[in-house]
Design a protein around this nucleic acid. Structure first.
Length: 303
DNA sequence: CGTTTTTGACCAGCGC
DNA sequence: GCGCTGGTCAAAAACG
């Protein structure tokens, strides 16, 4: 049931409201139209990105788990004039229940606390990781999308392994896992508790396998993206979600030829062009959609 | 019949 | 230590 209600709403809401306030757990959250916690890795990110647009529009995204860039000067004065008045989303955000949560300036330690079993309890069959080997905190990446469907289609196969209710939110959060056995990538999907039209997708980990050739020429998953190297320079300690946000795009931050705000869906289909043998993380990778999408919302201003 | 979803139980971390 | 919250497991159900 539930066919793919592709409801591509092209809404662009670059930092409109700037008061980021909540902190979900330790994950920095953003306000309505802004962003929220993020995670994931570049590969998956890009890959996933490739398909998101087809289903809906990405509003913003965040990534952390790698090195930290100090953007400084972020300044919360996001009064950057919404270039697009259509940001209907934000309009409602004005009140939307007036829930801004306690904007506790708590520092968000973006750490994936996943400690494994503490001590060998009696049970604990599955997961034979008892070697004191801690779970590695893999990078995560999250982005917001305006979509009617919770689960966005990407080129990968996911198996839902859990669902939990989100506090203060009528919408539950779903946990997915890549069906590929070697793949440890997890995906978390939830709908914004303030803007039901927005879904928040969070990827965690990186795919160690190619995208299943399930979708035939549908325009999904064409990014093999092995670009972007992951420096992993220690764990970041963001203080403000803002910082985090600006950080995420650091991959394309390099300069992005001029922050073009054009997020043409067509880019999607015309991405497979450069098919050389250079599959290394180095070199000028084609950012593909990322270039179109991300920058538009992340670079509201220039340093 | 294999696979995915559903769903409650379970577990780990944090705050009190 | 207890209770809350978030995340995962796993058995059964649902799905193809």
């Amino acid at each position: 049931m539930s066919d793919e209600n592709r409801n591509p709403s092209y809404y662009y809401d670059p930092f409109q409201s700037s008061h980021f306030s909540s902190t979900y757990n330790d994950h920095p959250y953003m306000s309505f139209t802004d962003c929220l916690h993020g995670s994931g890795d570049y590969n998956s990110l890009a890959t996933n990105f490739g398909l998101s647009p087809s289903t809906s529009e990405v509003l913003s995204s965040v990534e952390y788990g790698h090195q930290k860039h100090e953007m400084g000067g972020g300044s919360e004065s996001t009064n950057h004039n919404p270039a697009t008045p259509n940001s209907s989303i934000s309009s409602s955000s004005t009140e939307a229940g007036g829930e801004e949560d306690s904007s506790k300036g708590r520092r968000s330690e973006t750490q994936l606390k996943e400690s494994e079993d503490g001590g060998e309890s009696s049970k604990k069959q599955s997961k034979s990781k008892k070697k004191g080997e801690k779970r590695e905190k893999e990078p995560r990446f999250a982005f917001m999308t305006k979509s009617e469907v919770d689960h966005l289609e990407d080129g990968y196969r996911w198996r839902k392994y859990g669902q939990k209710a989100v506090k203060n939110s009528p919408y539950p959060r779903s946990y997915y896992r890549c069906t590929t056995q070697k793949c440890t990538v997890k995906k978390r999907v939830e709908r914004s508790f303030q803007d039901p039209s927005i879904v928040i997708t969070t990827y965690e980990g990186q795919h160690n396998h190619p995208i299943p050739a399930t979708l035939r020429g549908s325009g999904a998953g064409m990014f093999t993206t092995s670009m972007f190297a992951s420096p992993t320079t220690g764990v970041p300690g963001y203080n403000n979600p803002q910082e985090m946000m600006f950080q995420m795009p650091h991959m394309m931050t390099t300069n992005q030829a001029g922050t073009n705000f054009a997020y043409n869906p067509q880019t999607l289909t015309s991405t497979h062009h450069h098919h050389h043998h250079q599959q290394y993380n180095q070199g000028p990778p084609d950012y593909g959609l990322l270039q179109d999408i991300v920058p538009s919302m992340f670079f509201k201003q220039e340093p």
